[in-house]
């Protein structure tokens, strides 16, 4: 199957991101929201025929580690931090905003995130019930803990926050 890029968006470097109501402390969710909304703006795809796949090696390490530091310091947890540490939170937020009722997936792989996300999109689009897949790739500058973890792996930490979104569909001229 040949895929066609219907729209795309990217953040690669320091940028003032619009705040996303309810999301605090970390740039992860604003990054996801920013590239996703830019990619979906003006697109007319029925929500039940659109899938979203978010790929990130370590996820929202900023929120994860902030919550963990609060825990070991004996401070009362902020329930908001729990919500934001999983990608489900921002995916759920986007699904409501764009009425997306198709599949929402979040992945982590060490075997080449770009290729895996494209393969996953192709596999999803083999389903005749779907017309398009919004692919999101997000990586933050690692926290101290995440940097230590990544130093133990064959993985490279990004030097700045980055996010990319591609809205993919089957190539219409493919036989």
């Amino acid at each position: 199957m040949t895929l066609r890029v219907r729209s795309s968006a990217k953040v690669d470097g320091p940028v003032d991101l619009p705040a996303v109501p309810g999301f605090i402390e970390s740039t992860f969710n604003p990054l996801v929201h920013h590239v996703a909304t830019n990619c979906l703006a003006g697109q007319d795809i029925p929500g039940d025929r659109l899938a979203v796949v978010l790929g990130s090696l370590v996820g929202d390490c900023t929120t994860t580690d902030l919550a963990s530091r609060l825990l070991v310091q004996g401070q009362v947890h902020n329930a908001l931090l729990f919500m934001q540490a999983t990608a489900n939170a921002v995916l759920g937020y986007l699904s409501r905003e764009f009425d997306i009722t198709g599949p929402l997936l979040a992945l982590s792989t060490m075997d080449g995130m770009d290729d895996e996300l494209l393969d996953t999109a192709e596999l999803l689009l083999a389903d005749p019930g779907l017309d398009a897949v919004l692919v999101l790739g997000v990586e933050l500058v690692p926290t101290e803990r995440a940097a230590h973890a990544l130093s133990l792996l064959p993985a490279t930490a990004p030097r700045h926050d980055l996010a990319i979104a591609l809205l993919l569909e089957r190539h219409p001229e493919e036989p």
């Binding site: 580690d65 963990s68 982590s108 060490m110 803990r145 230590h148 973890a149 990544l150 792996l153």
Partner: peptide, 19 residues
Amino acid sequence: VTRFWREREETGLADSVPA
């Protein structure tokens, strides 16, 4: 994750990365 922040322990830290 907890062990890292509580004790600076790195044993098993790679498994904090799901992949």
